[in-house]
């Protein structure tokens, strides 16, 4: 795979198909956490980290355990269950979420030991990453719902770029919401509703990226 292919993946995941503004993934923490810039950056970095790791591990899971041995030629369990068994539709949800939950727990344990300051800064947001649609979404988009079979590097790269795009959108939103807090908004629209209107406008501007990478 050449550089332009990788660049297309990166640009695509950050701008053209921004996970938050175009694919609607990761909205739950977006509204809850993006009120202040420092929280948004912290959450964004943690999510990016988990997304990259999750992309890598789920790719391995998909290619070496779930896909039938007949297709890939290297299913670890083929000696037990045979070459034709396609476990993907049955096990993808459960195994992917197990991977993600375990990864988040691992990240929490490691961070607590290595950087207690960062751990304290992220606080409750760390366990919330488990239920982040973006993490599970990117795992699915890399494997089962991908337009073509991705290589390990492509999948991990897409996970990383998706996280960066997510963080960028959260940063934009938090900067706007900080200023919005001082503005005179009608009482019923204060808070979440007007934040959504702003998101609509940002999403509208991001539509301008569509078509830059050619068809598809």
């Amino acid at each position: 795979m050449n550089i332009s292919g990788y660049a297309a993946i990166i640009f695509g995941s950050i701008f053209v198909n921004n996970f938050l503004l175009a694919r609607f993934l990761g909205l739950c923490p977006f509204i809850g956490v993006s009120k202040r810039t420092d929280e948004a950056v912290g959450m964004g970095m943690a999510v990016t980290f988990v997304m990259t790791l999750a992309s890598a591990v789920t790719w391995l899971l998909y290619n070496y355990l779930l896909l039938p041995g007949a297709e890939t030629g290297h299913n670890i369990m083929s000696f037990i269950m045979g070459n034709e068994v396609n476990l993907v539709p049955i096990l993808k949800n459960v195994s992917y979420i197990l991977v993600i939950a375990a990864l988040v727990q691992l990240v929490e344990i490691t961070m607590r030991k290595i950087s207690p300051a960062l751990y304290r800064a992220l606080g409750i947001y760390l366990p919330l990453i488990t239920t982040n649609c973006a993490v599970m979404g990117v795992a699915l988009l890399n494997t089962t719902d991908a337009p073509r079979r991705f290589s390990f590097v492509e999948a991990t790269l897409q996970g990383f770029a998706a996280g960066i795009g997510f963080m960028m959108a959260m940063l934009l939103m938090s900067a706007i919401r900080e200023r919005l807090a001082l503005a005179d908004v009608p009482r019923s629209m204060k808070g979440v509703p007007v934040a959504f209107i702003c998101t609509a406008l940002i999403a509208l501007s991001f539509l301008g990226f569509a078509g830059i990478l050619g068809a598809g």
């Binding site: 037990i80 068994v85 476990l87 049955i90 096990l91 197990l98 991977v99 490691t110």
Partner: peptide
């Protein structure tokens, strides 16, 4: 094959992650 495969994969994953997390939380 589906049933056996599912059981083994989930058991295997559970065992690996469980062991991994146990080791991590003890070592770290």
């Amino acid at each position: 094959g589906f049933i056996i495969g599912s059981i083994f994969v989930m058991l295997g994953l559970g065992a690996i992650f469980g062991a991994g997390l146990a080791v991590a939380s003890a070592k770290l």
